[in-house]
Amino acid sequence: MADALSVRGVDCFYGETQVLYSLDLSLRQGEVHCLLGRNGAGKTTALKCIMGLVPARAGSIRLGDVELTRLPPHEVPRAGVAYVPQGRRLFAEMTVAENIEIGLMARHMGSDVREAVLDLFPVLRERLRQRSGTLSGGEQQQLAMARALCLEPRVLLLDEPTEGLMPSMIAKIRQSVATLRDRGVSTILVEQRVDAVLKVADRVSFIENGRVRETVEVDRLREDPDIVKRYVGVT
C-alpha cells in the first residue's frame, strides 16, 4: 500500500540556520508514527515543515499524489493535513464554537462533521459559548484536537499533545489517537513520554540534529530499551 505521507530529503532553515538535514520519513496508511528525540532535535520543525509553515528549501513532501512543497501554507490543510501545535495554540479570545468553526471552514465541512467531532470530545459540547482561553488544560487539548479533526484529515500531526496534562487526561488523549487510527487516520505524533509512545505507536523514528537516525517498529523498542537510551537519554 502506498504511504499516506512521504518526506524525502527535506532541508529546512530558520533564517540562515539549517534545522533539518535531508530528512526522510514515511507514514503508512492508518499508522501512528512517533517522532522521538532530544529538545531541539528538529521534531517540531519537521511538523511545521510538512505544514508549509517553515518552507522546505530542498526535497519533497508528498501527500498521495499531491506535492505539498509546491502549495502555499494555507492550501496544505485543504489538501487533508491537520496540525495540532505544541501548546495547543487555540484562538484564546474566541469561543469554543468559533474555534471549531475555524476548523470546519478550511475544507467547507458541515454540521455532520461538527457533531461527529463533538461526540468524540463530549465535554466541549457543554462549553461551546465559553472563551477557549478559560478552559482547563485538558479541555484545551481536546479542543485543539477537535478543531484539527474538523478538517476530516487524511494525516494528523500532533505535537506533544500530553504535555502538562494530568494522567487521566493523558489516557483520554491516547484513547482518542487510538480511535482515530481505527478510523484510518494516519498520525505523526511528537512525544517526549516514552511510556505513552510504547502504548500508542506503531513505529518510532528517532531524530537527532535534524536527521532521522533510525526508524523501528514499536515492538523492537519493548525488546531493546537501549535504542531509546541511545537517542533520548532516558527510558
Partner: peptide, 19 residues
C-alpha cells in the same frame, strides 16, 4: 472571524486554511 483568527495567531490561522 477570519480577521480575528489572523489577529490572534497568524501562523495557526494559516494551518487552518486561512490565506
Amino acid at each position: 472571524m477570519i480577521m480575528r483568527a489572523t489577529q490572534y495567531d497568524s501562523e495557526t490561522a494559516q494551518a487552518f486554511g486561512i490565506p
